[in-house]
Write a protein that binds this DNA or RNA. Structure first.
Lengths: 331, 331
DNA sequence: TTGTATGCGTTATCAT
DNA sequence: ATGATAACGCATACAA
């Protein structure tokens, strides 16, 4: 039962030294073919599992990765993080690592700090990055290897992300090509890098199409239903023919407001979202949006981090795996 | 910087033995008031943090808890798990523990097994329990302390859960009191304990009201949109005046079917869900449902587990914190 | 190829 | 009240 089998027990049972057993397991150092076989056989038969804690103590490693999770209500429910976690978990598992989560407000360093200072992890993944990220700054100073999901301005920070710039540019282009020219943009917090990236992609599409965007129709820095109501009213007043939202929550808000204002989608106003989630699964009409592969993103982030930990040279990654999902709301 | 400060360094700097330093920190064993003060002061000034790994090796502990997460697509997106995690994380943090996640299919033991056998955790939390749960069976055999969120039949397994029985009974009672008497029930997988619990609560309400339920209107063991379509047709054919769904996904499905069948909610058919999530946030009409406090549940589960780990006597918990959210769909 | 001795950072067991 | 020393389970430099 309680597999308390240690490397010493095996050594004694086989009449060899613990060093030999250790070598047979790790494969490091020269060791006799036959001896090695005996050890392998024994650990197989007795289901020996090395104590990772002890192993870690000896080589100053934990075989744990911490994932910093945003605890903000609202954001929390986006399936992105959950899907991302599945990918991360799988990738970590494949390498013999485990995932430790730290959920906290993005501006609160303390939780992550405790974990790092207690030597509980070999690296970290940030799942959401602010423009000037406190967590990133702390990790950088601490010297712990880490990667950020979502772009940061700091070139020294390892980054991985979906190519939101290209994706948003494409979605916008598609809408412009459909003849929707007075397009409004409703976005998230200004201090999120992704907000700026999306806006850039949005504007780039206008440039591609040689159309002058109406910058007074770009609303960022918002955060809440009340403001959205005002925005929609302003948008309607300015006779816009379409709205792109930075995420599904905003899209949902817009739909509610339109409903109360008797504005029909897509007849009176087209609607699209930069992120596809289940939040709008049952919304009517179905909303045109961008679809990313979050699991893949999570897995890639972990592999990248592990490479970094092993001292390999790693470069930033920008995943191209996205697709524009055209639905009823822009017909 | 690289806080490589060890207990030895402190001992040397203060001219005492490491034993003394260890005592001053842990508070265990007798130690002079003055000596203790000096040590405390020193570790404060130099920001000393004990190496939890080494500490763990010495006392056969990891200060880690593993949370088994269901990896099934679909379930994944329910905000329950994410909210639950926030509560768990907080409770663990308060006790100096960290949360390690293992995401896998509920029937796949291997992931969890690796973590347990490698001695990486002191305990486990199961976030979803099957009727005959393989994970629970494995953990039980392994001897590792664990608690299950969601009831199990096995009385030897520590359990904590919202009182779904009472909650579903109440929701059903409310609807019956509103005069909705031909109530249908559409439910989840038969091998989930919660499915059975909810059905029991549903039936209990009928008994309370001394009304005979039409058992042919109870549909469990379903899993998918196609079947739901058939069910709704059958329900309509039998002239039911209301439907209760076991979760928001089913409720969403029902709404879609009704829409295509030109059935109006709530005029032609009332609708309610046993679980309130953001999945239906933008659904119209708003759906009447039960609202639980998931964070609180997560936190309580962790505290319960830690008590168990520390050898305290712990008993099963059934949280009463729920409320019936009456909305438009049952007006 | 194999074994010995030592270290990793902490707690626990004895003495003193 | 304090200190020397031995665990904890594994890795590794150095010897043999």
């Amino acid at each position: 039962m309680g597999t308390k089998l240690t490397i010493d027990d095996i050594a004694e049972a086989l009449g060899v030294s613990k060093t030999t057993v250790s070598r047979a397991i790790s494969g490091k150092g020269r060791i006799g073919r036959e001896t090695r076989g005996r050890v392998q056989e024994y650990i197989q038969a007795h289901n020996y599992k090395p104590n990772v804690i002890a192993k870690g103590l000896a080589q100053q490693r934990t075989y744990n990765i911490v994932v910093a999770w945003p605890g903000d209500p609202g954001i929390v429910e986006l399936p992105f993080f959950q899907n991302c976690l599945i990918g991360m978990s799988q990738a970590a598992e494949d390498a013999g690592y485990d995932i430790l989560v730290s959920v906290a407000d993005s501006k609160d360093i303390s939780k992550l700090q405790r974990i790092v200072e207690n030597h509980k992890v070999d690296g970290a993944v940030l799942t959401r990055t602010l423009v000037r990220d406190p967590l990133a700054a702390y990790l950088k100073e601490s010297g712990l290897p880490f990667v950020a999901i979502g772009s940061t301005e700091d070139p020294e920070v390892l980054q991985i992300d979906n190519d939101h710039y290209a994706a948003c540019r494409e979605l916008t282009s598609v809408l412009l090509a459909k003849g929707i020219r007075k397009l409004a943009l409703i976005g998230g917090e200004d201090n999120l890098v992704i907000t700026q990236t999306r806006r850039s992609g949005f504007l780039a599409a206008f440039e591609d199409a040689k159309i002058q965007p109406d910058r007074s129709l770009i609303f960022t820095g918002t955060d809440g239903q009340a403001e959205v109501t005002d925005m929609v009213d302003e948008i309607l007043e300015k006779k816009a023919d379409g709205v792109i939202c930075m995420d599904d929550f905003f899209a949902g808000n817009v739909m509610e407001v339109c409903k109360s204002r008797k504005i029909r989608i897509p007849e009176d106003l087209k609607l699209a979202s930069f992120y596809d989630s289940s939040v709008l699964d049952y919304a009517s009409p179905a909303v045109t949006s961008l679809n990313f592969n979050d699991r893949r993103l999570g897995a890639a982030a972990i592999r990248m981090l592990l490479d970094k930990i092993e001292g390999k040279e790693v470069k930033n990654i920008r995943l191209k795996t996205y697709e524009v999902m055209l639905r009823e709301s822009t017909k």
